[in-house]
C-alpha cells in the first residue's frame, strides 16, 4: 500500500487547481504544483487514462497482428512501399521539433513565458520521438531483425551497416535527438526532483527522488551550474532541430523518384513542420 499523502489535513482526492490570485507565496506555489503527486488521481484523469489505454491497446493489438501476419496487412504495394509509416514518422518527428523549439530555442532567446510549458513540451518531444522511432521499426518486413541497422561488433564477418543509406542516417539522427532530448528533459527536472525529495516521507519514494535529484542542495553554485548546463544543452539541441528533419527529408531527397528527388526538401520541411506544430502551442 502506497500512501499518497503524509499531511492529515488534506483530502486524499485531488482538488481542482486553485487559480493564482495576487502574488502568492512561493511555498504555496510549490504546494499547488506538487499536489497532483501527493494525491490520488481524480475521476476525470482516470477516464482519460482509460480512454488512452484503450486506444493504446487497440494500437498494440493491431501492431501485434501486423507483426504476426506480415506487413501486407497494411495497404502498401509495389509502387507505394511506404505510406502510413513514413507519414507518421515524419509527423511525429515534426511534433518533437516543436517541443525542442519551446524548450531550447526559446531558452536561448530568453523567452520567459516558455517556463509555463517547457516541461510538458520536453516530455512531448521525448514521446513524439519514441512514436516516430516506432514506425521505422514496425514498417520493416522482419522487425525482429531491426537491430541489424545498428553498427555493433558482430560475428557476421564483413557484414556491416551501409553508411550511404539515408535510412541509416535516420537511425543516427533519431538516436542523437533522443539522447539530447532525454538529457535536456532530465537535467531540467533535477531541482524539481529535489523539491519532491524534500517533501516525501522516508521510504521508497524518497530514495528514488534522492537518486534522481543527484544530490541537489539548492545552493547558488548548483543553480549556476544548472543554468550553464541548460544553456549548453539548448545550444546542442537547437542545431539538431535543423539536422534531424533535414536528414528525415533526405529519405526522399536523395532518392531518384520523381516527386521525391528534390533539393528543396531539407529547408522546406523544417519551417513547415515547426510552424505547423508550434502554432498549435501558441493558441
Amino acid at each position: 500500500m502506497i500512501r499518497f499523502d503524509h499531511r492529515a489535513d488534506r483530502s486524499l482526492r485531488l482538488q481542482p487547481p486553485r487559480p493564482p490570485v495576487g502574488n502568492p507565496a512561493l511555498g504555496r506555489i510549490t504546494d499547488d504544483v506538487a499536489r497532483p503527486l501527493d494525491a490520488r488521481p481524480g475521476l476525470g484523469w482516470c477516464a482519460c487514462f482509460a480512454a488512452a489505454a484503450a486506444a493504446l491497446s487497440i494500437g498494440a493489438a493491431c501492431v501485434g497482428y501486423e507483426i504476426a501476419t506480415g506487413i501486407g496487412t497494411w495497404g502498401l504495394n509495389r509502387t507505394v512501399g511506404w505510406a502510413f509509416d513514413i507519414t507518421n514518422f515524419v509527423f511525429w518527428v515534426g511534433i518533437g521539433h516543436a517541443g525542442t523549439l519551446i524548450s531550447a530555442i526559446l531558452l536561448l532567446l530568453r523567452q520567459q513565458w516558455r517556463t509555463s510549458i517547457n516541461r510538458s513540451a520536453e516530455a512531448m518531444t521525448i514521446f513524439a520521438v519514441i512514436c516516430a522511432a516506432l514506425f521505422p521499426l514496425i514498417h520493416m518486413g522482419r522487425p525482429w531483425l531491426a537491430f541489424w541497422v545498428f553498427p555493433y561488433p558482430n560475428s557476421r564477418g564483413s557484414l556491416w551497416v551501409n553508411f550511404r543509406s539515408p535510412l541509416l542516417w535516420d537511425v543516427f539522427a533519431i538516436n542523437t535527438y533522443m539522447t539530447i532530448s532525454l538529457a535536456f528533459w532530465y537535467i531540467g527536472m533535477i531541482p524539481d526532483f529535489a523539491t519532491l525529495r524534500d517533501r516525501a516521507p522516508a521510504g521508497l519514494k524518497k530514495t528514488i527522488y534522492s537518486i534522481a535529484s543527484l544530490g541537489w542542495n539548492g545552493s547558488h553554485r548548483t543553480w549556476s551550474r544548472y543554468e550553464t548546463l541548460n544553456i549548453i544543452l539548448a545550444g546542442l539541441a537547437t542545431p539538431l532541430v535543423i539536422s534531424v528533419h533535414s536528414i528525415v527529408s533526405m529519405d526522399f531527397a536523395t532518392s531518384i523518384l520523381p516527386g521525391w528527388h528534390t533539393t528543396i526538401f531539407p529547408p522546406y520541411w523544417r519551417p513547415t513542420s515547426r510552424t505547423a506544430t508550434s502554432t498549435r502551442w501558441r493558441r
Binding site: W82, P136, H139, M140, G141, R142, P166, D251, S255, L257
Partner: peptide, 12 residues
C-alpha cells in the same frame, strides 16, 4: 538472409 524489409530499394 540479410534483408530486413525496409523496402527503400523498391521505392528507389
Amino acid at each position: 538472409n540479410r534483408c530486413v524489409g525496409t523496402r527503400y530499394c523498391e521505392n528507389n
